[in-house]
Design a protein around this nucleic acid. Structure first.
Lengths: 201, 201, 201, 201
DNA sequence: TATGAATGAGTGTTCATTCAT
DNA sequence: AATGAATGAACACTCATTCAT
């Protein structure tokens, strides 16, 4: 149960992610993962006690990537003004998604498997639920739309995920649908203030 | 391939839907479905030639329910003005989702499970792809936001689905988040005209 | 259990034979046969009480075809001289096999399935086992090789079956390997007299 | 894909062969084999990736036994004279068949069951297809009958197989039908030279 | 005579998991 | 830390057969 070889653990997670991307989360099996890594099937159980633990590992790693985003952190910085906080958050998430085009997809796929995974990152970031605090502050400041934040979050994630997928699958190119257009759409949905054109440096 | 006893076919579909609701689409197995209906496993193959055909059956039934909605039909009526068409579409979908709280969820689950299902109802409603035509017309008429319609659709579906789920799981009551508030949010995202307050009967 | 519609019975047998030719005897199933005939699966049980009975039907029909051959009958005519009897038997079997290229194959395939089918036609032709009598007479007349007739029979059948298959699969054309050559080979194996060239009219 | 415990692999092959002998090749199922060996059904898939691979295993083992025969090797020795080569081949095959009474039967059964197995050993022995070369040489040397070798091969195999079966099932004893008689019969079929009595040591 | 409906047993195959080495 | 071996349960799917209509 000791986890020494972090390289191997990473390899296992990578292989699992690749299978999700190629065949969907329902296709994951320890057999397949082991074959992909080039280790024996039982070896996986040295690093993850369970298939569920393996899934947890993948899920948490993707979530973690998102959280480490500078935009994510900037969003939570209470010294910033509200509008730049929201705007840079969108920008960061947008960039993140294009740079890691599978990340949101993987998160979604794992949730498909068992519903008892925590919902998105809505309630996950750090102690005291800072996301909740930001939304409350934003609403009081009359910047964010006064509505349950889960709806705003859903829009942010679903639009960016779909946009990324569209580019990925060649529905349109990155030039056709600019960040300006996409972020403005989201902005109009989740805020009640005009889109801050000047922030588009 | 269909047989006479439509009751049985319906029972099988119902059981499958229930499993999706309870455990997710990935948990579907012919064994489970049969047990739930109270028939022998092989009997299922009299009504559906395949597991895939069973999934198709569930998917198409839910899609069909949506299409039969009066709002859906109203949306497609070219004699109507654009703003009421979009508005009544939102209203209809909203009502439908609250009346069939699992329907959008089931559609999403199946779509997620096997990526080769046709995408939502985006391209499904009848011949000549009337949804595409509506969006094109709406954009030309400077009512809908000039952006790939898949993004607008995503917003409509994800927000309404999440809203329904929120009510279902008691996150808030139907009074706390009114149709007015939810539809206005979507409206601001997908159109470039002010929300038509007067249409709120 | 009454068998009225002989046409239908024939159709069932034909379909079964076709499946054997296409996929081998192991692939026979009442489902497949019924589908091929265009009747319901259960209908087969009106004509054949069993799957075994169906196989019997096919087997006996093919055997019967062979027995009805004029050469077969000529072979058994005690008024004929021994050498022409044997020769015309070979000729008849040869012609039969080329005319019904699947017949010996089907017999072989059914025997594959359950070993309790009677062996070839060795002991089947009519009462008093006339084949046995012919071989005894032939051996006494110092025409046939004095050896258990099953070995001679095996040569006759295996060579002609293989020859037919060779032509069927294009190993060589009928011109390359003539009846003269093939029958001479068999002749030298099963008799102890010179090949009767003059009988090659 | 092969694992260490060669004993187990052998046991599985043995059980499969036994089923073929008892019930025919069509009766093979992984369930039956596993039960016969006394292991779990899934264990078979550790040693054979497929049912087909299992059949391959049985087939190749029997073929291999044949090829290892000294007579087989002698037949291929180009320094020997043609007549002894052919004769010793017959003798070797004869002895082999009596020593392994099921071997030719098993080969035939598997070949019959799935037609895509390589044909007998006709084209299998080593590189450059030495069997083909022997037959060509033999025909040029005016020893073997100038006819497609598949027909000669068929005679050799079918006669020896049937002879073995006859003894096995008590149709006659080994004394009644001597090697001399049987081999002479084959000899007269496949060669055009007199039977070499002097080689019967 | 014919069919649709049903089923229990069987098929080959994959799975997550355990354990001795 | 790693593996080969093993297994029982599950999987989708097919089968021969029966029965009421």
């Amino acid at each position: 149960m000791k986890k020494k070889d972090l390289t191997k653990e990473k390899k296992i997670l990578d292989a699992t992610v690749q299978i999700i991307i190629d065949e969907g989360a329902a296709a994951i099996s320890t057999t397949k993962v082991a074959k992909k890594v080039g280790i024996s099937q039982s070896n996986i159980y040295l690093y993850f006690k369970d298939k569920r633990a393996l899934l947890d590992g993948v899920y948490l790693r993707e979530i973690g990537r998102l959280e480490e985003t500078t935009g994510m952190k900037q969003m939570l910085d209470p010294n910033e003004a509200m509008i730049p906080r929201v705007f840079s958050y969108l920008k960061a998430l947008y960039d993140f998604s294009l740079a890691n085009p599978h990340s949101l997809f993987v998160i979604e796929q794992i949730k498909l498997l068992s519903r008892d995974f925590p919902d998105y990152i809505e309630n996950l970031v750090g102690p005291n639920n800072p996301v909740a605090q930001l939304f409350e502050t934003g609403i009081k400041a009359k910047v964010l739309r006064p509505i349950d934040r889960s709806l705003s979050m859903t829009i942010i994630f679903s639009v960016i995920r779909r946009h990324t997928e569209n580019i990925q699958t060649g529905v349109y190119s990155e030039n056709d649908a600019s960040f300006a257009a996409v972020s403005r759409m989201i902005w109009d949905a989740i805020t009640i203030v005009p889109y801050p054109d000047e922030l588009l440096k």
